[in-house]
Design a protein around this nucleic acid. Structure first.
Lengths: 340, 340
DNA sequence: TTGAAAGCGCTAACAT
DNA sequence: ATGTTAGCGCTTTCAA
């Protein structure tokens, strides 16, 4: 492996000149720059990451804490991860993937200076990792929103608002008996806040409109989807509006409704909360509130990298949800009884 | 951040003693070790990763090239990734995730000494990355099997054998008209070899038994699954055995068969090739050849890390498939016409 | 506009 | 069993 001294020698300059030519941190004459570049090419020189990290205290690596817990949707996780990797690489950063993100792992990579910054996913209301994260010297961005975000930067979809928007879309069309098929039970039990916020927004919107609301956690399996649909139809036989916040279950929910003889949207209107590609790749596209997972991941990387140079004030950033009508809902006429 | 000199000072020893106490590369008296450990604890000392990498030429990081290409099943990808991360962390290694794995990215991380080894996923028959990979000084393990694996270490499920096993399970039960609903068209077109090997094993087994075989690439969407089932039933209306090598499509294939009035296993026998958890979390569990993605990922990490110290001979390692009968197939009586 | 030189924090010969 | 010392390859002050 060629070193910076090899390059310097070959270009007939000093090592520091090569370094500055590479970093652009001081002016270099056109001629010198040319010779340095030729030498670099000729030797296929690449600065040693460790040496650079040692001298500059920067690794150009961001850590990504992405626990692979049960009940979380790998599909959505992957979109977040892809977004983070893309966003990071656009800024010249690589990503160290940590799936086992207990507190010791966090402080290990942080205090060994393996990463310049940290993006953390799957935040719980009272997440046990928060104290360790607040104590780091590296900037941190959470994808999610803990109960107490003080001292931390967070980005997420505004799930409360998403719950509102989904419910309101149905309420405004005259529906008065709504159900939310939500995240799997274990996700809810962990107090993963997106589930709680979604539930809350949905419930509040229904309450404000004087409509009945049913919350039904739903396992991310075919059986889970079937069971949840069955449960909803039993507890609220006259339901006319269903919100589905569960990407895996969604197609099976639709199938099960059909199986029960409930046509969408004639008998029951459906609004999903999921990434757009999911909503459009179903046999019948479904009206949905978009979960822009890749965008959020990309923004998280961007924010945290900006933070490395001290350019990022603490903030909580909640993206406003947008609903796209794809025809899986319909208006209920006043006085109409749409149940079969 | 405390340095090794701080620790040495506090423990009243030299820096090298601290280093050796940490690495165990030479004997340390019990008393000295005790004092070093106390100092480390007291100062919350963690060796600087960059400094260590510079001095020892080791990063304790393995790179994982996991392209997120269209058509690949994120679910399965994630299981591989999880396996690699788990296997690596068991040996004290972290994982640098690279999703944009063109040749320049590979040589960048390799020659910058950012990683000690590389695991590469989603291998095509004539993968353009192979020359770059063969040229690295770091050990490499491919998850997959290129047309010409010389000079490389590979691990994968023996998909040829898997195709055989799946077909034979049906052939031995008297089925003579079989279809394989396989990977998405774009995966096949890229010459991703698991798809080709699976097809080949399936076709060969059918040919050897004198049975008719139909290959049907299948998009990983509900619509794709429906279209493929429809196409198979049109081209081979008397099909009685179906192999599904497409995790996403699988539940929808089953639903579509039902929709066509073909009961499983009464009218049509089904064998899947997928991770076990997929096969068992369907409404009706399905007989399957297991795709042990997590295990393969873990083994890949293990092999490549072993290779760092020169302990890994080049080899191609293909895991033998195992079929688990879950009752989604049945025997056809001689002379019986099982088509509805 | 460029060069010389002092570290960055650690490992691993080489001594004792 | 432990200490001394010479780098590892780079960045960045200080000088010119």
């Amino acid at each position: 492996m060629a070193t910076i001294d090899d390059v310097a020698k070959r270009a007939g300059v000093s090592a520091s000149t090569v370094s500055y030519a590479l970093s652009g941190k001081r002016p270099i004459s056109a001629e010198t720059r040319r010779r340095v570049e030729r030498a670099i090419k000729a030797l296929d020189y690449r600065p040693h990451a460790g040496a650079r990290a040692l001298a500059s205290s920067r690794t150009e690596v961001v850590g990504l804490l992405a626990p692979l817990r049960s009940g979380v949707d790998v599909n959505v996780i992957m979109q977040f991860v892809a977004g983070v990797v893309t966003g990071a690489s656009e800024r010249g950063y690589d990503v160290l993937l940590l799936t086992q993100d207990d507190r010791s792992n966090i402080s290990r990579v942080a205090s060994a200076s393996m990463v310049d910054a940290l993006v953390v996913m799957d935040i719980e209301a009272d997440d046990p990792r928060l104290p360790a994260l607040r104590a780091l010297r590296q900037p941190v961005v959470l994808i999610g929103l803990p109960a107490d975000p003080h001292g931390l930067t967070c980005i997420d979809l505004d799930f409360t608002s998403a719950g509102h928007v989904a419910a309101r879309h149905l309420l405004e069309r005259g529906h008065t008996r709504l159900a939310l098929l939500g995240s799997p039970p274990e996700v809810v039990e962990r107090h993963t806040t997106y589930a709680e916020r979604m539930n809350h927004g949905f419930t509040a919107a229904c309450a404000a409109a004087g409509a009945k609301a049913l919350l039904q956690p739903t396992a991310a399996t075919v059986a889970g989807a079937n069971a949840s649909v069955d449960a909803v139809l039993e507890q609220m036989p006259d339901v006319t509006g269903i919100v589905v916040h569960n990407e895996v279950a969604l197609p099976h929910v639709l199938a099960r409704l059909r199986w029960h003889g409930r046509a969408v949207p004639d008998d029951v209107s459906v609004v999903a909360l999921c990434p757009e590609n999911t909503a459009v790749s179903l046999p019948e596209p479904v009206t949905s509130v978009d979960l822009p997972a890749e965008t959020i991941g990309r923004l998280a990387a961007d924010m945290v990298i900006t933070g490395i140079d001290g350019g990022q004030p603490l903030e909580v950033r909640l993206l406003s949800p947008t609903l796209t009508d794809r025809g899986s809902t319909r208006a209920v006429a006043p006085g109409e009884d749409p149940t079969p």
